[in-house]
Every structure is written in structure tokens, then in C-alpha cells.
Design a protein around this nucleic acid. Structure first.
Lengths: 167, 167
DNA sequence: TTGGAATGTCAACAAGACTGACATAAAATA
DNA sequence: TATTTTATGTCAGTCTTGTTGACATTCCAA
């Protein structure tokens, strides 16, 4: 597609192995920063990153089913179930049997759950906001473009659906 | 919150909570894609992501010490040691006692280790290359700018040093 | 020379992922 | 109606990868 600006002698220097390696390492180090603040908060409580992810996506799509969450998170039901069980026991998440289909469980955050979600996402947003502000709008647009191109196609679908449900 | 415009007429629309949330989710889904290909290869062998990281950075800086690797990877020495032990047992990494300081161990990939590193990074680079090509050079520049701004400052230091040692 | 700091190893444990087997209930279908 | 499929939950066991604690070795400086 946008292959370095057409074929007429334009440089593809940004596609050298060295550039790609730098991109890979940037991704590695940046992801550490990306998760560092929520991880600190979660460490104080008895929760981990898995709980954060569950709470995040339940907040994003209240009433989502277990199966739906499974597909978004890309883990096994056994693994997700362990996390959900503790969140429900601790009163952060509620599970309601579906009205139309009684096999389904619809998931909602309680007030306490929403408070935790807020606390976690505030921390993560603060870092993202600082990075976005430092980098400027054009860089942010490029950032998003590359990330979308890097997703697996099924995940890109999930991401796009979430994105569009936002506003 | 970040709700619109500054006084000096510049749009800050890219800093709304909604935009930040999309950035967070993009990061989450993209990182899954980023690690998917190496993870598949590693799953067939008896290795995990931790082995990949170790092999990657030993390849990047041959002769690096355990302590140095520790700082880059951000795990405990005990955790790294387990990984290194299996890699050494399997003949992928060599550990040499330091000449100047005999407490240090200097780490090198064997031929087999270099072959695995190549195989893993080929897979990861292929995806990165496709994403970079689809996104174009301006987007790639923005991508790198935002990622660097998102790192913790110590990690940014490590990243920059690696980056500059590259060419 | 002696004690502290740096470096690395071994052991034990926990979180969170996995697979496999199985149970239950409800929906869909033959 | 009988059977199969789907959605969910649970138990048991394994693996990777993180953690702390205890310890050995080596270096260096008081």
C-alpha cells in the first residue's frame, strides 16, 4: 500500500532490519511503561493484570457475556473464570443470567468495581496523555495507524467494533 | 477533562479520554499481535517469552553480563537465572567467567542459539515490516515517537543506548 | 585482614496461563 | 420428542515466569 511513497526511487530506509529491530525494542520497552502504573496499584491489592483487563472490558461493554469477553481477552474460560470468580466474590462484578438466553451470564461492574476501574484507567490514561501530548497529534495518528496494522485480523475486528461503539 | 482546545487555537481533540482509551486498547491488541508469531514458535519448543527476550538481548549485546541483562529485562535475577540455566543446558547460550571481575558471567549465543534467535526475530520482523509498510514512513515515525514518550525514563535510557549501539 | 557490597546460584512458592474431563442447563435441530 | 449443540462453570494437573529467602563467591575499601 503506502510503500514509502510510490516506486519512483523513493527510499525505503524505514524498512531496514535495523529500523525494524528498533521498532521491536521500542514496543517492548513501551509496553512495560504502559502497564507499570496499573500494575503498581494492582500489586497493593491482591489482583493482577488479568483482573485489570477483565474490569476494563466489562466497563467498556456493560452486560457483555462471558463468551464475548473470552474472545476479546484471548484466554481460556478456565483462566477467565478464576479471575471473574474472585471479582464476583469481592463484590466488584455482578453476573446476571440472561433474559433471552438463560445460558448466558451478563457481566456488570458494581460501584466498587467501577471505582477500581476508574482508579486503574486514570493511572494508565495519565501516562498515555503525557506521551500523546509530548508526541503531538501527527505522531499520535501514526502511532494508531501502525498499531492497527500490527494486530491480528480478528483482533482488529474486535478493536474496531469497540472503537466505534465509543462515541 | 482534556476537553477540546487550548487558548492558542491549537486543537487538543486528540487528548480526549475517548482518544486515550482507544490508544490504550490499540496498545493492548497490537501487543498481542506483536508477540503472537514468536509465541507460536516457542510453544512448539519447550520455551516461553522469557527465553525469547533473553536470547534477543544477548544477541544484541554479546558478552553482556547477567546483571546488565537483568536491568534491561526488569525481572529478578532468580527469574532470569532459571531461563538462562535452561538455555545453557540446551546449548543455546554460553556463560564465561569475567576476566577482569570473576564475579561476572558474560553471555554469548552459540550457533544453535543464534539460529533460534534468527528464527524468532524473522517472524517478528516480518509482521513489523508488514505493519510499517502498510502504515508508511510518517506513521512509523509517529509510532516511534509516541512509544519513546511512553517508556519509563530509565528504560528510555536503556532503549536509547541499544538504539545507538545499532549502527 | 576483615567486613560490606556486588554477583550469581539454589530452593520454594504464587499467579496466571494452559489442557483435559466432566456437569448442567438451555437452546436448536432432527 | 429425542438428540445435539452451545454457554457456562468446575475440578485436577501442568507449565512458564514471576516472587522472596538463603547462601556462596569474589572484589574492594577501611
Amino acid at each position: 500500500m503506502a510503500d514509502g511513497r510510490t516506486g519512483h526511487g523513493e527510499s525505503l530506509l524505514y524498512l531496514t532490519d535495523e529500523q525494524l529491530r528498533q521498532g521491536i525494542e521500542a514496543m517492548f520497552f513501551a509496553y512495560r511503561g504502559f502497564t507499570a502504573d496499573p500494575d503498581r496499584i494492582l500489586g497493593d491489592l491482591a489482583y493482577g493484570r488479568a483482573h485489570h483487563r477483565a474490569v476494563h472490558f466489562i466497563n467498556r461493554a456493560p452486560g457483555t457475556t462471558v463468551n464475548n469477553l473470552l474472545n476479546i481477552l484471548g484466554v481460556t474460560k478456565q483462566s477467565l473464570n478464576r479471575v471473574l470468580r474472585t471479582l464476583i466474590e469481592d463484590g466488584l462484578v455482578e453476573s446476571h443470567v440472561g433474559k433471552a438466553d438463560k445460558r448466558e451470564r451478563h457481566l456488570y461492574l458494581t460501584e466498587a468495581g467501577a471505582a477500581l476501574e476508574q482508579r486503574l484507567s486514570d493511572a494508565q490514561r495519565a501516562r498515555m496523555r503525557a506521551a500523546f501530548r509530548d508526541a503531538g497529534p501527527e505522531a499520535v495518528a501514526g502511532f494508531r495507524t501502525v498499531l492497527e496494522a500490527m494486530m491480528d485480523s480478528e483482533l482488529r475486528g474486535a478493536y474496531t467494533r469497540l472503537k466505534e461503539s465509543g462515541t
